[in-house]
C-alpha cells in the first residue's frame, strides 16, 4: 500500500513553494524515491522545463521519475490514475480552504493507500490576523487542530520575540521552514526503499536543523513496550518511520509530529529498521545529542 501524505494550510502559507522545493531537490538526486504529487493548480508549479519529460492531460512526468498530477476536484479519480503506476508515495497539496483531515481520510478509504501523515503549513506572518478573521478564523484553527505536524513559514520576517511568542502559542510539534525548503525526510513517509541506514547511526541534515537516528535490529520487539515507547517519544522527534517486527506481527510505523500509527505490513524486509528525525535548536545543540542517545538506549530495551 502506498503512503499518502497530506500537505494542508491556508492560502498563501507556502504549500506550493514547499512542493516546488521538494520537486527541485528530488530532481537533483540520482536515487530519489518515485513520488507523485497531487496539486489543485498546475499554474503555480514551477518546474524547470528541462526536467519535464512529458505533459499529458492531468499529469506531468518529470525526468526524475516523479509525477505531478492535477486533482481537478476529483481526488479519487487522481488516486485511481496513480494506483496502477507503482509510486512509492503520494503527497497531496490540499486547497487552502480544505479541512486536511477530510483529505487524509482518503488514505484510509481509497483502496491501495495507507496513512502518511497530515502536515499543515502555518504562515507566521499572518497567522494572528487569519485566526481572528470573521470568515476563515474557525477554518484556520481547525486546520491546525487537525495537523499531526506543523510547518511554519516566513519566520525570517519576524523578530526574535515574535518568533518565541508564536512558537509558544503553537499547540503541537512544529518545524521551521525557511524559503520553502523543507527536508524531504520530513515531508515524505517511509517506504522500504526510502530508509537509508548506511548513513550511520546519526547524521546531520545539511541545514543543521535536524539530527537523524537510524536503528536496525533482527530482534523481535515487545509490542506493549513499543507502544509505550511511541507514546513517550521525546518532544524534539518530529518524524519517525520504518518497519517493525514485534511480538504481534510486522508493521509500518508512521510517526508524524504528535501522532503515530502502526499499520499491518505484509511485504516488508525482515527485522526492524527505523529512522528518527529530531529538531535541533541550534547547530551546536548538545541537548539533542543527549536526547537521541536516550532514545537509542530505550530502543535497545524494547
Amino acid at each position: 500500500m502506498t503512503p499518502l501524505t497530506v500537505l494542508g494550510g491556508y492560502l498563501g502559507a507556502g504549500k506550493t513553494t514547499i512542493i516546488n522545493g521538494l520537486l527541485a531537490s528530488l530532481a537533483q538526486q540520482n536515487d530519489n524515491p518515485r513520488i507523485a504529487v497531487l496539486v489543485n493548480d498546475f499554474g503555480a508549479i514551477n518546474i524547470d522545463a528541462k526536467l519535464i519529460r512529458k505533459h499529458r492531460g492531468r499529469t506531468m512526468e518529470m525526468t526524475s521519475g516523479c509525477v505531478c498530477c492535477n486533482i481537478q476536484d476529483d481526488l479519487g479519480g487522481a488516486l485511481d490514475i496513480l494506483r496502477g503506476e507503482s509510486f512509492e508515495q503520494v503527497l497531496i497539496e490540499t486547497s487552502g480552504v480544505a479541512y486536511p483531515a477530510k483529505v487524509a481520510d482518503y488514505a484510509v478509504t481509497w483502496p491501495g493507500y495507507r496513512r502518511g501523515g497530515t502536515l499543515v503549513v502555518v504562515d507566521a506572518l499572518n497567522i494572528d490576523r487569519h485566526k481572528d478573521d470573521k470568515f476563515v478564523g474557525p477554518l484556520i484553527k481547525e486546520q491546525i487542530a487537525e495537523a499531526d505536524l506543523l510547518l511554519v513559514t516566513k519566520l525570517d520576517q519576524l523578530d526574535c520575540n515574535q518568533v518565541q511568542k508564536l512558537w509558544d502559542s503553537l499547540p503541537k510539534r512544529a518545524v521551521r521552514v525557511d524559503h520553502g525548503y523543507c527536508n524531504a525526510d520530513i515531508l515524505l513517509a517511509s517506504t522500504s526503499n526510502s530508509i537509508d541506514t548506511s548513513k550511520g547511526k546519526t547524521a546531520n541534515d545539511h541545514s543543521d536543523q535536524f539530527r537523524t537516528l537510524a536503528y536496525q535490529s533482527d530482534r523481535v520487539l515487545d509490542h506493549c513496550r513499543l507502544e509505550v515507547f511511541l507514546d513517550e517519544l521525546p518532544e524534539p522527534v518530529v518524524r519517525a518511520k520504518g518497519w517493525i517486527h514485534d511480538s504481534e506481527g510486522r508493521w509500518w510505523l508512521q510517526s508524524v509530529g504528535d501522532r503515530w500509527t502502526l499499520e499491518l505490513a505484509s511485504a516488508v524486509p525482515a527485522g526492524t529498521s527505523l529512522v528518527f528525525i529530531a529538531l535541533a535548536n541550534t547547530p551546536s545543540d548538545r541537548t539533542i545529542d543527549a536526547t537521541l542517545a536516550g532514545l537509542e538506549q530505550a530502543l535497545h530495551r524494547l
Binding site: 476529483d74 481526488l75 477530510k102 481520510d105 478509504t109
Partner: peptide, 18 residues
C-alpha cells in the same frame, strides 16, 4: 477500508467517491 462498510455495501464521505 474506512468510510466503506463493505459487508453492508455502504459507501459514504470519501468512500462514496470510490
Amino acid at each position: 477500508r474506512k468510510q466503506i462498510d463493505y459487508p453492508n455495501g455502504h459507501f459514504f464521505e470519501s468512500g462514496l467517491g470510490y
